[in-house]
Structures are given as C-alpha cells and as structure tokens.
C-alpha cells in the first residue's frame, strides 16, 4: 500500500528522458517465497493492479500485467534458483541469493513487466522506438530504484 502511494504521489512524476517512470510497486512481485500460494498471490496482484489503475485512470492495464507476472514469476525464479541447486524452499532475498542472481531476476521481471505495461498502454507497435525507449528507461530506473532500496535495507540490517 505504501509502495502504491509512493508511486502515485511521487515516482509517477519522474520520467527518465520523458519516457519511463520507476515502478516501485514492482516490489510486490519480488516479495516471493517458493511455497507461496499462486492463487492468493494472483488475487493480491489483481487488487494491487486495480488500485494503481484507479490512480492512473487506466482500469485493467496494471491489473492484467500484474496477474500475468505473478503467474509466470515462479517459473522465472525457479529457472535461476534451481540451476544453482539451492534448497527447495527459498525466499527471493538480496542477502540469501546474492547480488548477481537477485539482479538478474530483478532485471528480467522488471523488463517483462514494463513490456506488458507499455504494450497494454499503447496496444500497437507502430511507434516502436518510443515503445522501446519507454521499456528500457522504465526497466533501468525501476531496477536502480529497487537495488537502492535493497542496499539500504541490507545496510540497516547489517548495522
């Protein structure tokens, strides 16, 4: 909830090069445990997406993108984590997975989410360059913001 309020009050007004804005509420997608119930996550994602949509006056856009990402995120996480033969039960955490894996997962999730969101907003590839710039700047700014947030958290915990 705090993330959504931060997003609509603060981050929505920062557009990198006039294109993509950082999406702080994506932290919801990264707050993942391997034993999470997919259905309840999708329902929470629906509510979160609709909440953001209400402020953006674009009902359905964030909701669909969020539900889709919640649905596939487990596969993406498994792809990275299982290859490294970690425990079956894991938490997507900066400290437990290490910065490399975490950043890779973060970039992929953010990129896919930005692609979904931008496409649903534009619903055309007619202006492909603008679309690409929006996705790239959105991915870049969101990744930077989430990494910064995690560094802060990690640093505070460390102290």
């Amino acid at each position: 909830m705090i993330c959504v309020l931060l997003q609509v009050i603060f981050f929505d007004h920062f557009h990198v090069m006039g294109y993509g804005a950082p999406l702080i509420y994506i932290l919801f997608l990264l707050d993942y445990r391997s034993n999470d119930n997919v259905i309840s996550s999708m329902l929470w994602g629906t509510l979160l997406g609709l909440f953001v949509d209400m402020f953006h006056d674009s009902i359905g856009v964030n909701m669909m993108a969020m539900v889709f990402m919640v649905f596939i995120r487990g596969k993406i996480f498994d792809m990275f984590v299982r290859n490294r033969k970690l425990n079956d039960e894991y938490t997507l955490d900066f400290s437990s997975l290490g910065i490399n894996i975490y950043t890779q997962i973060l970039v992929i999730i953010t990129f896919l989410y930005c692609v979904c969101l931008s496409w649903l907003e534009d619903i055309t590839f007619k202006y492909f360059l603008q679309f690409l710039l929006k996705v790239v700047t959105g991915t870049f700014s969101t990744t930077a913001l989430v990494l910064f947030y995690n560094f802060l958290r990690y640093y505070r915990r460390g102290r």
């Binding site: 259905i39 674009s58 359905g60 909701m63 539900v67 889709f68 649905f71 649903l120 619903i123």
Partner: peptide
C-alpha cells in the same frame, strides 16, 4: 490446475475492464 483457471478468469475480467474503461484500446 486450479491456478490456470483462476489466471484465465482474472485475465478475462481484466480484458473486459480494459476494453470497457479505455476507449482507444
């Protein structure tokens, strides 16, 4: 496969809302 059905249901609801509330889309 209940998660598949829930996913499809939510996406269908999303498409309906999306097409109803966004005139261009």
């Amino acid at each position: 496969n209940s998660h598949w059905f829930v996913f499809l249901l939510l996406e269908i609801i999303g498409i309906i809302l999306y097409s109803q509330f966004n005139s261009r889309q």
